[in-house]
């Protein structure tokens, strides 16, 4: 029995004598942890030693138990202290050591981009949604009725000419004079009014087509149509809606001016100009009070309902906002262009 006792005492003596050196010699956290494990880990010397405690004679157990615990606690205390010291040293080294080369290229997650036209379109949609308007759309190829007749264009109106409007070929290969690529998003007005009862407030962004192709015209471009129909809607409301919308769009209170103009489906009709504080007047688009003939065509009572409509070019707004010099650049899809905004 005394062998066991002796072995235990010797072992404990040895651990007690060496642990400081073992733990203090570790230069970093992993080696400290490894050293610690050699002492008090599952296979550590002290751990193994303690498994021998049951063979120690009963009268010495209490005494040696207390001593063992004291060593164990001392090891833990030293380990914790060393750990803290190493962490502090590492922190200190990082904070005072060599700096990063911040000029190395970044590793980019590289998000993509929305097209500038889409960005403007979404901005417009957000503003109008916040004002209580719904977003609507409609087909890009539509009927002559929806594009012209129901909007009050007289038959054979110059705008309906083959010169200005793309018509499609019918199944027989001949021109179908009743089916065309919509020349404006005002078709959305007709479609919305035809399927819904007033009151209604909608805006319709979309692609439109005209037979124009030169330095400043693209045969395909984008418009946004707006329509509000209710009882007692006045031109003052139209001006107010435009003022609020344009102010929100530009992010500051803008001045709005209506100038008389002519569109068959509104009367009185106007051009909308806007001016930012200290800026120049900009042409925004066309607008006016919905013409009674339009209401008659969609089955609304023009004596009961009044409304306003407006339309504006999205491409032009994108060009102004993003400094695009040429409308064609919007449709060339040059990746350098697409990644710029």
């Amino acid at each position: 029995m005394s062998d066991a006792l002796k072995a235990f005492e010797d072992g404990l003596d040895e651990v007690e004598a060496s642990y400081r050196e073992v733990l203090s010699g570790a230069a970093d956290e992993p080696s400290l942890r490894a050293a610690n494990a050699k002492l008090v880990g599952p296979e550590g010397r002290l751990t193994k030693l303690l498994k021998l405690m049951k063979s120690v004679p009963g009268d010495r157990r209490k005494d040696l138990g207390q001593r063992s615990n004291a060593v164990k606690n001392a090891i833990k205390e030293l380990f914790d202290g060393q750990l803290e010291a190493l962490a502090a040293a590492a922190r200190e080294a990082e904070l005072t050591g060599p700096a990063l080369d911040v000029t190395l290229p970044g590793r980019r997650p590289l998000p993509g981009r929305l097209h500038p036209i889409t960005r403007i379109k979404h901005e417009l949609m957000d503003v109008f949604t916040s004002l209580g308007f719904d977003i609507a759309d409609g087909p890009e190829i539509d009927t002559h009725e929806n594009c012209f007749d129901k909007l009050g264009f007289p038959p054979d109106h110059p705008a309906t000419d083959m010169q200005d409007t793309f018509f499609v070929k019918g199944a027989d290969g001949n021109v179908d004079p009743r089916t065309l690529l919509r020349t404006h998003t005002s078709t959305i007005q007709i479609r919305e009014m035809s399927r819904r009862e007033p009151p209604l407030a909608v805006v319709g962004p979309g692609v439109v087509y005209r037979r124009d192709d030169d330095a400043t015209h693209s045969p395909m471009f984008h418009q946004l149509e707006g329509l509000l129909v209710d009882e007692n809607v006045s031109m003052a409301d139209l001006q107010g809606a435009l003022q609020v919308f344009l102010s929100r769009l530009f992010g500051e209170v803008v001045e709005v001016r209506l100038r008389p103009s002519y569109f068959p489906f509104v009367e009185p009709g106007a051009e909308v100009d806007a001016r930012r504080p200290g800026g120049e007047w900009m042409e925004i688009g066309g607008c006016g009070m919905v013409h009674p003939v339009v209401f008659e065509h969609v089955g609304y009572d023009p004596e009961k309902w009044t409304g306003f409509a407006f339309g504006m070019g999205i491409d032009r707004m994108a060009m102004v906002k993003y400094g695009v010099p040429n409308i064609k650049a919007l449709f060339e899809n040059d990746v350098r262009f697409l990644s710029s905004f």
Binding site: G132, A201, L228, V233, G240, P260, G269
Partner: peptide
Amino acid sequence: EEVARIHGYEHVPTAVPRVRPSATGTA
């Protein structure tokens, strides 16, 4: 329109329109 035009569109005041939002909203 003729009366508005000659009298001057600048006489048209600016009002905040009442928009009655639809129950369904955008599709």
